[in-house]
Design a protein around this nucleic acid. Structure first.
Lengths: 249, 249
DNA sequence: TGCTAATTTGCAAATTTATGCATAAAATTA
DNA sequence: TAATTTTATGCATAAATTTGCAAATTAGCA
């Protein structure tokens, strides 16, 4: 029995029992206690089990993977993303802002889609790196760790020098009167610059973002080419936007 | 029986069995254990199987998740990373190159470590974004999708303007005479620039990178302040480096 | 086809890894 | 505190592996 097999055996055993005693397992597998202890130590160091005096327990809440992005309201975001697909066409130069709505959208982009995409979001860049025909350009700068996006003067400078066909803009808040607003000043500056650099601007907003107001203004509704939500365009919640002449879908 | 056939045979065998013992397979195919081991090594380095002492297992459920980076030879890389920790001290300005060895290293960095870190690797940036006291600066540019790193003129330009205390340099190949070499030209240019920008350069090399020679030279051994491998510094495989006056650990 | 170069394979020596045992240290229990 | 149980550590041994080398095989090419 190879070491690796024993380790697997131990981990499987925890399906049946809550605790494994060192001595018992040594008898069961007919090997020395020392070996079991060494196994326990290794698994313990890997964070898989909890070694105690006399045996070991399974570690249950294994810390979740750093790279697992938890998307809240993913179903709504998928609806938004699917609608946004209609704005894609091969050969475009695209600016993709950050946020989980845009991340959901990126997951839906056909694998063979061909374009040049600028982004400053780490998760979105990783997602898009799966697409062989997308030329991907990451806009560097200081990282805002929480959102996993770069921000600041470096980002603005790069954006000020490019020209894109279309920008998919994740929104924090959208309101009939205030337009798009953001919580952080720096993000609002970056988004302004993205709008300036893009021919068309598509606002990607799940319904919970509607009628919110935040500190820093990004732009008025008139600067948006379209607003995409998870709602039916006839929904009363978006009636104001439609009435204002906005392209809502 | 050709090598290719054997490799195929091995992979097919895993359809039936969970593990393959080196000796058993040697008997079964009536060839030497050495050949089986070499086969296992090759398949292991391709990430198809998991070689262990005494045999091999199939690498299964390669997660489809884009964000799950599969690190081959992770054990070795963890050993390298642990040794590298001794070079860290609070307040440093660090350049962290790409690669899974550095990624493993980053996973080991204490959560409260405080520093400024430049990187151009998406996975490493995501990993380091977990550290609240690290100021993280991502070097933007065109993305090389396979390695998930930015490359090209933009990266070189940013690097040419910064000054770091230390650089942790993932290596593709290291050789007594050739020094550090790379497969891709662009990567070699970026690495040269990193070395220029850094006070100290630490080469991070798992043992399978030793005595390899590739097309594009990065630097000679004399430019390295230390080489970290998973081997014991007394190991004969690194003797040449030690004899050349290099700091090997 | 025949020759050369490159690759592959098996062998042997050196090295590493896994394992069990003895003993000392640490933790638990009474 | 003392007695008992469990664990850590160093060491010995056997098995597995690495590595350099030479022979054998395969591939490339005139």
């Amino acid at each position: 029995m190879l070491k690796r097999e024993r380790h697997q055996y131990i981990m499987n055993k925890f399906q049946e029992v809550e605790k494994i005693n060192t001595i018992d397992l040594a008898l069961e597998l007919e090997i020395s206690e020392d070996t079991i202890r060494r196994d326990f130590n290794e698994l313990n160091n890997k964070g898989l089990i909890n070694k105690v005096y006399g045996g070991a327990f399974l570690v249950k809440d294994k810390s979740k993977n750093v790279f697992d992005i938890n998307i809240i309201n993913e179903d709504k975001k998928i609806i938004v993303g699917q609608k946004a697909l209609s704005f894609l066409s091969d050969g475009q130069v695209i600016i993709m802002s950050g946020g989980t709505t845009n991340l959901s959208f990126c997951k839906l982009i056909p694998i063979d889609f061909s374009a040049t995409i600028y982004t400053y979001s780490l998760p979105i860049a990783m997602q898009l790196s799966q697409h062989p025909n997308i030329e991907l350009i990451f806009i560097g700068g200081k990282l805002q760790k929480k959102a996993m996006v770069t921000i600041g003067i470096d980002v603005v400078q790069v954006l000020s020098k490019i020209k894109a066909d279309i920008c998919f803009l994740g929104v924090s808040s959208i309101d009939e009167n205030q337009g798009l607003t953001e919580m952080g000043y720096e993000v609002s500056v970056v988004k302004k610059e993205m709008i300036k650099a893009s021919g068309k601007v598509i606002a990607m907003a799940t319904s919970d973002k509607i009628n919110g107001k935040m500190m820093h203004k990004v732009c008025g509704l008139e600067q948006l080419h379209a607003v995409i939500t998870d709602l039916n365009p006839k929904s009363p919640k978006v009636k104001n936007f439609v009435d204002a002449g906005l392209n809502v879908l």
